[in-house]
Amino acid sequence: MTTLVQERKNKHIQNVQNSPVMTSADYVITARDFSVYYGEYKAVKDVNIALNRGKVTSIIGPSGCGKSTFLRCINRMNDLVPGCRTTGKLMMEGIDLYHKRLDVVELRRKVGMVFQRPNPFPKSIYDNVAYGVRLKGRPPQTQLDGIVETSLRRSGLWDEVKDRLKSSALGLSGGQQQRLCIARALAINPEVLLMDEPCSALDPKSTARIEDLIAELSGEYTIAIVTHNMQQAARVSDYTAFFYEGVLVEFGETSKIFTNPKNEKTNDYITGRFG
């Protein structure tokens, strides 16, 4: 995060921090009374949460409970939705993500995102991975090759595609495409990785690969994953947040939430009584 601060300083943006640093260095993302509105509709209601550095946090809850909306606020993807506005504070390492002078483009380079449906660009596999890197400048070819290889290795795709890097990414299978999207996000070296139901469009085998991948990446990246699959949440995450009708009902260590939930609604949800 220091680089983000430094870069912003370089851009002569001052007085960015209006509010005091509230959290310890262990927390990357903190939300305080954070609400999201779509027009008049309040989709996320006064959420207070803190995501731990280097941990995997899963966000669960029934459809329409605001978990995706919350996730997409972290890299300001909701800006694309007309009529979306927020109240409260959403901070990343002490920086207000909704400050009006925040460089959104810079934020998104720090907070990578993987979407529900694999969305590789209609370009070659190589160009897909290199896309984010090239946005920032033109590194030498050898360095770019290195970045592409490392990213693909990390996402476990390298061995499958190393012979056809120049062929179109649309020719890959769904699971491969999703791992390519992860590699693409990793190539620009973000600090936080947001995953919006990354396995919902994939078969069980590909899902297992992605879950393994998440486990490998945890520790290095702070990961937030939205999922409908409770087993998945239990398997991959360190912390779990349960959203219900826009309200954060319960947040805590995954083992505790799944074995001994404090809230009755949480209990009902994870035991499958509704949702």
Partner: peptide, 27 residues
């Protein structure tokens, strides 16, 4: 052009113009 292309490009830190030139127009 699928909206996911726009989201993908913007999510990787592309500005609007670069997303249009680099991803949306070619598609």
């Amino acid at each position: 052009v699928p909206n996911s292309y726009r989201e993908g490009a913007l999510g990787l830190g592309a500005g609007k113009w670069r997303a249009i030139c680099g991803v949306i127009l070619p598609a």
